[in-house]
Each structure stands twice: as structure tokens, then as C-alpha cells.
């Protein structure tokens, strides 16, 4: 069975290497591969993350997300369990958050 993910390039940790190639369908498919079904609330976060990336060239931090949407930090962790910045970035086709070392 073919999937929309067949032609998408990922790094070794499952993050898209080219954020510009992302589409909503790809987002849905990445979420499904992580065992998630996306709700309207997930999309508030994903849409914000995409917009933030287009404007700033980087993934938003949890603070950026909660300060600029009606999603609280607690809800953010419920939507994206075990690390929202990382999982939200993955589903949104953005890079993994890094420290300097």
C-alpha cells in the first residue's frame, strides 16, 4: 500500500529534513505513524507552529505556543505526550529542538 510518506525524506530520528515539503496530509500521516489521531485542538498547535516557522525560521518553544494561542501548557502536554516541543515539531514537519552542545 502506498502512503503519502513514501516520498518524504526524514532524518534518523524521524524529523522531516525539508520543512517546506510538508502538507496537512503528511502531518496526518506522521501523526498516525506515532499512534495519534489529530483533533481540532492538535491543529491549533500545528497551525501555529507552521506559521511561527514561516515567520521566524525556527520551531516555536512551548512558551511561544501557549503565549500566542488559547492552549495551556497542561493541555499542550496532554495533546502531545512525552515532549510537546519535539512531537509537535515532528508532526508539523519541523526540525528537532537543540541545545548548543
Amino acid at each position: 500500500m502506498s502512503s503519502v510518506l513514501d516520498k518524504v525524506k526524514f532524518d534518523s530520528e524521524g524529523f522531516m529534513t525539508d520543512p517546506k515539503a510538508w502538507t496537512k496530509e503528511i502531518g496526518e500521516a506522521i501523526a498516525a505513524s506515532e499512534g495519534m489521531k489529530l483533533s481540532a485542538r492538535h491543529w491549533v498547535v500545528i497551525n501555529f507552529a507552521r506559521k511561527y516557522f514561516e515567520e521566524n525560521g525556527e520551531s516555536p518553544t512551548p512558551r511561544n505556543i501557549t503565549k500566542n494561542s488559547d492552549v495551556t501548557t497542561k493541555e499542550l502536554y496532554e495533546l502531545f505526550p512525552g515532549g510537546p516541543a519535539k512531537l509537535a515539531a515532528k508532526v508539523s514537519g519541523l526540525g528537532k529542538p537543540h541545545g548548543c552542545i
Binding site: P62, G83, A85, K86, K96, P97, H98, G99, C100, I101
Partner: peptide, 16 residues
Amino acid sequence: TPLPDAFTKPRANAKL
């Protein structure tokens, strides 16, 4: 730490 590891960059992580 909120980061995914103590050392997040691949080369530093491999060495340290």
C-alpha cells in the same frame, strides 16, 4: 532538562 538529552548535538553526544 527540557532538552531530549544532556548533549543534543550528535558529535558532542558521541564524544561526551
